[in-house]
Write a protein that binds this DNA or RNA. Structure first.
Lengths: 202, 202
DNA sequence: ACTCACCCATGACAAATGTCATGGGTGAGT
DNA sequence: ACTCACCCATGACATTTGTCATGGGTGAGT
């Protein structure tokens, strides 16, 4: 009995390469392949894959958001998230989205294949190194607003601009930024951004 | 007559996937595959590939630096750089490093295959969209020192820290930062960093 | 010789940023 | 009811950052 797969990755070349790799296994069959997050659900509905392999960084809809929608719309399809190593925060979000497997692109191909098979058997699969990293980063100490302010600041905006965009007073924005800097034990707005980003707190 | 290929990409999964993809073509043969830039030259020397397919982001040695070394040490081996779209500055550096082809990972697989074949015939191959982007970004207006200061600033350092690290006075650092901000027409240190990075000026 | 771009530096000033104390409002949990 | 965490805001303050004028030194090119 062959596993029907759906591939989603924004990089065309990576997508077709993965497809070629997975087709080498006799029990895998790639039945659909999309390049945007918002095409995932449609494709899953029409091709009824057993497992969807989703990259996180995608245009249209985030891979994790796509996973959440898929969970509801096509519950029979299990999700394996496939992404670049390092982004610690993703794992937590992925688990909340009901993802069954989490494989990093650094892993050798056998890991991916076995992850898919294990997910098919109903197991949950997570790269242990990544799990450790996530545990180490811990949960975000930032409040929703602090996160908002930081993410707007990321584009290089001044306090005044952030205030306008979020309908806040400048003082409030400064307070949130100050809190975020303190919580990340950073020296700077920039430093805070870097540190928060590293730990997946954004 | 088959083309002997060397693959270099830090992501194991991408590497083996690409390998699977390229092996589908009868005239291609992957003779070596490495995950670090500093392993490229050794591998090229022992396996004598016709074409080396290099990712840019790699530990040990940058893909472009590896290309430059390869050019000298194993001149018979032509280089095709394969990287993520968007980083405009890379193309210029790649051309200076004597790279024969430049393919983005967004491209469909036929583009990669044809690029490899054309490079084998002695042609130079560059994605036209990428070339346009690079032209649009233009050459960096930043002086060496301004670049230095910016790159140190990227880690979230304060002016004082940058000054210490580069053995400059604080005032000088501020001057360079100010110049960089002006030249990128940014509002901020952060903004300047973002803009310069986007255009490959770092 | 002269120009020009870049290197480095100072000092002074304006503007933005970061910190702190303080206080009022809301909703969730005990 | 009470606490607690979070929301939002103000005002005052110290510090940092960004800007500008100015000037000296170097090396490459004309």
């Amino acid at each position: 009995m062959t596993v029907r797969l759906l591939l989603a990755d924004d990089q065309e070349l990576v997508r077709s390469a993965l497809s070629a790799l997975l087709e080498l296994e006799e029990d895998f069959e790639v039945v659909a392949s999309v390049g945007r997050g918002d095409e995932v659900v449609d494709a899953a509905r029409s091709h009824q894959p057993d497992v969807a392999l989703l990259d996180i960084e995608m245009p249209g809809l985030d891979g994790l958001a796509a996973a959440a929608v898929l969970k509801v719309q096509v519950p029979a399809c299990r999700v394996v998230v496939l992404t670049t190593f390092g982004r610690a925060g993703y794992l937590r979000r992925a688990m909340e989205a009901g993802v069954a497997g989490f494989v990093v692109k650094d892993a050798p191909s056998e890991v991916l294949a076995s992850a898919i098979r294990r997910v098919m058997r109903g197991e949950r699969v997570v790269d242990p190194a990544l799990a450790a990293l996530t545990l180490a980063a811990g949960e975000s100490p930032l409040t929703a607003r602090e996160r908002d302010v930081l993410t707007v600041a990321r584009s290089g905006a001044t306090v005044a601009e952030i205030a306008t965009k979020l309908y806040l007073s400048e003082g409030t924005v400064r307070n949130y930024l100050s809190a975020a800097i303190a919580k990340t034990s950073a020296r700077n707005r920039l430093d805070a951004l870097r540190r928060a980003d590293e730990r997946g707190w954004l």
